[in-house]
Design a protein around this nucleic acid. Structure first.
Lengths: 192, 192
DNA sequence: CTCAGAAACTATAATCACTATAGATTCAGA
DNA sequence: TCTGAATCTATAGTGATTATAGTTTCTGAG
């Protein structure tokens, strides 16, 4: 990796860190992109060159195609394991569902969950993988990609982080939702 | 209804119609709020007084609480009819799923479906009813409102318009998705 | 009928995210 | 060592949205 790329990555990191710190101190809406650019010591134009998606994208890793590991988890699952089970396990290990994180990442996650604009953008990033996930599901389950059921399942799975992420017990919520997707809605609740 | 309210409604209608016409002619991004205000012969400040949610809200009915009829359909369903069946029927009769509409409304629907910003806003309006729908579902099915399953079902149902609305056959898509929600994801597709 | 206050409207100016342009600097590779 | 591309910069927009302060227009009480 040449010096040029290194400097670029450094600038990007400076922007992320400045944004995260300032958002934490004054709230997302209490910070302007100008302040962030200043703090990172770059021009506003440079800031936008690094985050074409805008202010919300500042604290997210770019190019982190979130579907890669999901699709991989699907393809590499133990033979005989149901598709949904593989997705459940894979998802449960991700950020919103474990507290096994450095405090820095935890603060970041809390900021995202509690800020509507950031939460929405996070959802957008997840949903962007819908096509890829749908293809993988179709391939693994012998269905057609154009099957609406496949697309709906992909979408519903990818929305679990937003839906369950803010719950008191996110992991329990995730499991409840996967159960719903796997077994469907029982007209009457099962008595324990 | 006094003259004041009548005039207010008239202004609101003028804004809607101006926006819809201009969006149709030049596309959503090809029209500025200033143009719309001009066309409706009001100031920009007035425009925003009528649509505090912003440009996207211009062509949507405000205060049209979309959950009212859904909740009603749930409460008034024939006894013995499953919750999901009532929701399916009620939803199937709505705008995105029937072509039984005046051409004006159809053009509006097509504009929404084909414009990302409008589509997103439409989804936001649907999702805003999540709490109300979750309460109704909980009440009708003897579950607790805090039950994650109930919240997830409400959310998933409310997202059907966005998910199925752009399909070649929206009604078939809607039915496929309701089947998925009712019966769950079958590990292997049923052979016909 | 009238008058006081609320509601709707207006012009104006500001803020803020974001884009476009053109030029300067810095690095990579031949 | 030179050329071109990538990065960065300043500057000047555009366009949505908000704030302010003042004007007009209804409404309802007295």
């Amino acid at each position: 990796m040449g010096r040029r790329e290194r400097k670029k990555a450094q600038t990007r990191r400076a922007l992320s860190e400045a944004a995260l710190r300032l958002f934490g101190e004054h709230g997302y809406d209490g910070v302007t992109v100008a302040q962030i650019a200043d703090e990172a010591d770059v021009s506003i134009a440079t800031l936008f060159a690094h985050v074409p998606d805008g202010k919300e994208a500042l604290i997210f890793d770019d190019g982190a195609e979130r579907h890669v590991w999901l699709v991989a988890a699907l393809r590499d699952r133990p033979s005989g394991q149901p598709v949904l089970e593989a997705l459940r396990r894979s998802m449960a290990a991700r950020g919103p569902f474990t507290d096994d994180l450095p405090p820095e990442l935890r603060r970041k996650r809390d900021l995202i969950v509690s800020t509507p604009a950031l939460r929405e953008y996070s959802r957008k990033l997840w949903i962007a993988s819908e096509g890829a996930l749908a293809e993988a599901i179709a391939a693994e389950s012998g269905r057609d990609t154009s099957d609406m059921t496949v697309r709906a399942l992909a979408r519903y799975v990818l929305e679990i982080p937003e839906l369950a992420g803010a719950e008191p017990d996110p992991l329990a919520a995730l499991n409840a939702i996967f159960d719903l997707l796997a077994s469907g809605w029982p007209e009457s609740p099962e008595e324990a």
